[in-house]
Simulated scan of single mutants.
Amino acid sequence: MDATLAALPADADHRTAERAFIDAGWTRAGAGDWAIALRAPDGSAAVRISPFDPTGPYTAELYRAAAHTRLMPELFAHRRLSGGGDLQLMEWLTPVDPADAHAFHGLIAARDETLAELVDLIDSIHARALRELPWCGPLDTNPSNVMRGADGRLVVMDLFYADGPALYATAGSDPDALVARIPESERRHITEIPLAGSGPWDEASREEMRRGIAAADARRG
């Protein structure tokens, strides 16, 4: 997996990254609203590839800062992709019972003393994301974000996310506001997220949004 990642060109976007990993024998393992996941040939790792994910660097920072707690996925590598995409290479995880997931999120929300260090790291990095990112959402308490590592431990992932409904509503109704707040280089593939959970998102609507954003970029000069 290191060789596949190292071979990606400097300007690789999400499509280039997905093709490179598939060519190396990785297989499709699922998709969400923001990203797809591929699984390594030996089953030990996953790569999460998103066309557009402003919160990716903050998530990767949290994984690294909290690695010693063993309550976050083990992150092998993180890379920003051309056009605002994000790539995270991590250990393979499996789903857990929703009751266990809700209980884990409940401990975080209650600032349980057994998770004190983790909660402090989450709060610190999330507070900075809220200051620095337009349309940064609250913590994501989706039970599917709690999973289990191969060693049996519970981990929580993808706590940070962009407020998609508000962001995309603005992109559609007031693209000038969008282009004023997010540089083109960080939103070039904004209409290419999978939306596997909330979709489908028809191509005509995507194209209409692309035209509106392009016109706003032209007005901005």
Rank of each mutant, 00 (worst) to 15 (best):
L5G: 08
G172R: 05
I213E: 00
D23T: 14
Y63I: 00
R181I: 00
F160L: 04
E91R: 03
W135S: 00
L38K: 04
G85V: 01
A7M: 09
P194D: 05
L195Q: 13
R187S: 01
A216R: 01
L71W: 12
L93I: 10
I125P: 00
G83N: 04
G137C: 02
A166T: 12
F21I: 03
A24Y: 15
E208K: 13
A215Q: 15
R220A: 00
G199E: 09
L154C: 01
T191G: 03
R39T: 06
G84C: 07
I22M: 12
L62E: 00
V96H: 04
M1T: 07
A29F: 10
Y58K: 07
A3Q: 13
P9Q: 09
A214T: 08
R28K: 06
Q88N: 10
A31W: 13
D176C: 04
V146M: 05
A20G: 06
Q88E: 07
A99R: 13
E113R: 10
W26C: 11
I182K: 05
V179T: 09
W201V: 10
A169K: 15
A24M: 10
A116G: 10
W34Y: 13
D97C: 10
S82H: 10
L195N: 05
I125N: 02
A214K: 04
D23I: 04
Y161M: 09
R206M: 14
G106W: 10
M209T: 03
H126E: 12
F52N: 01
H14P: 04
D120E: 13
D158L: 15
A40F: 08
H78L: 11
A101I: 04
R80I: 08
D112C: 07
P143W: 01
A37C: 11
G212D: 02
V96Q: 03
A216D: 01
D13V: 06
R219K: 02
W135C: 01
D53S: 06
A66V: 02
W34P: 01
R79W: 01
A109V: 10
R206G: 13
H78V: 07
F76N: 10
S198M: 13
V179A: 00
H14L: 01
D23R: 15
F21V: 09
H105M: 14
H102I: 11
A109D: 14
I182Y: 02
W26K: 06
V96M: 08
V119N: 15
